[in-house]
Measured scan of single mutants.
Amino acid sequence: GSLMYASIFGNVSAIIQRLYSGTARYHTQMLRVREFIRFHQIPNPLRQRLEEYFQHAWSYTNGIDMNAVLKGFPECLQADICLHLNRSLLQHCKPFRGATKGCLRALAMKFKTTHAPPGDTLVHAGDLLTALYFISRGSIEILRGDVVVAILGKNDIFGEPLNLYARPGKSNGDVRALTYCDLHKIHRDDLLEVLDMYPEFSDHFWSSLEITFNLRDTNMIPGSPGSTELEGGFSRQRKRKLSFRRRTDKDTEQPGEVSALGPGRAGAGPSSRGRPGGPWGESPSSGPSSPESSEDEGPGRSSSPLRLVPFSSPRPPGEPPGGEPLMEDCEKSSDTCNPLSGAFSGVSNIFSFWGDSRGRQYQELPRCPAPTPSLLNIPLSSPGRRPRGDVESRLDALQRQLNRLETRLSADMATVLQLLQRQMTLVPPAYSAVTTPGPGPTSTSPLLPVSPLPTLTLDSLSQVSQFMACEELPPGAPELPQEGPTRRLSLPGQLGALTSQPLHRHGSDPGS
């Protein structure tokens, strides 16, 4: 009898404990919600809404976190579960008819179910419309201010047509639940991603989709105040780019002037030289400038040598048109050559190039014969006009050509200096018209024969001689050997007369 009593008592207590286990969990969670309300000092109306929603959600799901349970299964099984949970929507909604099984599984994985109690606001006026909503159960109302403009029910759709707008718009009203509602919502990016994977279904979906109420604000059109608020930074940046392009296009129409201050000032006329910023005076940081632009901040801005204009002085008759350009485009679109090309026009420029290279940067340069637009006047290309890779490749080509020119210049200078040193070592320090008596009659020769300089066969020296023939050397430049009979510069000019005159010897006659 005691054994029977113990078994009955144990079973009854276990049954009672299981009955009250759900209630215990409910009270535990309710205590957490109330502690949250007390800690954050939530006001009474919002506090009442929180408690009511918790009670309804507990009775609806029995305190089970559906998302946590669903995430515990593998992905393939999750797709089947989501397809079952959203079967009513996918079967009865017209846009989803005719979709393949794979497309429906992908869509079912992207849908999220939302449960809303009465009085809950789903979308506020001015919120971004980031999702498309399908009503599965219940009814909602749409308000503009305090005026109800629409009441939607089961199988209705609200949001915005995503295929017509590249960016999400703003809501033009509040969406509030009238009863307990079940909503299926899919985010904008998720829907577009699935439709991109199934393009054959995309056309059918957009053609058959009928949005019951379009929440997009109709005033959000390009150029409206609301649109400016939504895309303020983007609009200002776009206007700045367009104004920069218009100014650079105007600059290219004036090829007669070359400016070292950047493309923003290349198009300024002579009357605007004294102004601080020219056409860019209202925004000094709008356009890029070269490193020399920092010198323009000092006094005497109108007389600054940074602004270059072609000189009108005539060229000498024998002067060549100019050196070879550094870039391939210089032959086609440049009416002034790079300062480095002028360094190779003569030997005198070679000796004085490194010492006063900055001073020569603004000297007169030889002109190319074609009066085409200036290379320095070409505006900086924006990322939309020329690819970045093209600019980098041009810079690399320019750097390689500069290296080759520097190597060639160093070799030419070394060769010229070597020839000058050899000339100085071969010439005796001094010569006299009267020579010392020699031991015999073989001493009648006034000077030792001097062998002429070897013929220069280097390509670089031939180019130097060509430049010497075309360029007029300055007075202080050293002379180079030329073709024809060679003669030492330090010898007297009348050596031929010395050989014809008898030598005057000093000596005593033994017979006297």
Rank of each mutant, 00 (worst) to 15 (best):
L132H: 01
Y133S: 03
Y133E: 01
G138E: 01
R144G: 02
V147I: 07
V148Q: 07
A150N: 01
N155C: 06
P161F: 03
P161K: 07
L162W: 08
L162G: 08
R167G: 13
P168W: 05
P168R: 03
K170H: 10
S171G: 02
S171E: 01
D174K: 06
R176C: 06
T179I: 02
Y180R: 04
L183G: 02
K185N: 08
K185Y: 08
L192H: 11
L195K: 02
F201D: 13
S202R: 10
S202E: 10
H204R: 10
I211P: 03
T212N: 09
T212P: 02
N214Y: 01
R216S: 11
R216K: 04
R216C: 05
T218R: 11
T218H: 12
T218Q: 10
N219Q: 13
I221V: 14
G226I: 10
T228L: 08
T228Y: 11
G232H: 10
G233R: 09
R238Y: 08
R240M: 12
K241A: 12
F244D: 10
R245N: 14
T248S: 12
D249N: 04
K250A: 13
T252Q: 13
E253H: 15
P255K: 08
A260Y: 12
A260M: 13
G267H: 10
G267F: 08
G267V: 11
P270L: 11
P270Q: 15
S271T: 10
S271C: 05
S272E: 02
S272Q: 07
P279I: 14
P284R: 11
S285M: 03
S289Q: 15
E295S: 12
D296C: 06
G298E: 07
R301D: 10
R301S: 10
S303H: 04
S304T: 05
S304Q: 15
R307S: 10
L308Y: 10
L308N: 13
S312K: 08
S313F: 14
R315H: 15
P316Y: 05
E319N: 14
G323P: 08
E324V: 14
L326I: 11
M327D: 14
E328H: 15
D329E: 14
S333Q: 10
D335N: 05
C337Q: 15
N338C: 05
S341Y: 11
F344C: 14
S345I: 06
G346H: 06
N349Y: 01
S352G: 09
R360G: 07
Q361E: 11
L365F: 05
C368D: 12
P371F: 10
P371C: 08
L376I: 08
N377E: 04
L380Q: 15
L380M: 11
L380S: 11
L380G: 11
S381M: 15
S381T: 08
S382N: 15
R386W: 15
R386D: 11
R388M: 05
S393G: 13
L395M: 05
A397H: 15
R404E: 03
E406T: 08
T407A: 06
L409S: 06
S410K: 12
A411W: 12
T415K: 04
T415N: 13
L417I: 04
L420H: 09
Q421Y: 09
R422C: 04
M424Q: 05
T425L: 10
Y431C: 14
G438Y: 06
G440T: 06
T442Y: 10
S443H: 10
L448A: 09
T457R: 11
T457L: 08
L458E: 13
Q463K: 04
S465N: 12
Q466L: 08
C470N: 07
E472V: 12
P474A: 13
P475R: 13
P475C: 06
A477I: 12
A477K: 12
P478D: 11
E479D: 15
L480M: 05
L480F: 12
P481H: 04
Q482P: 08
P485G: 04
G493I: 09
L495Q: 12
G496C: 05
A497T: 10
A497Q: 07
T499G: 07
Q501C: 09
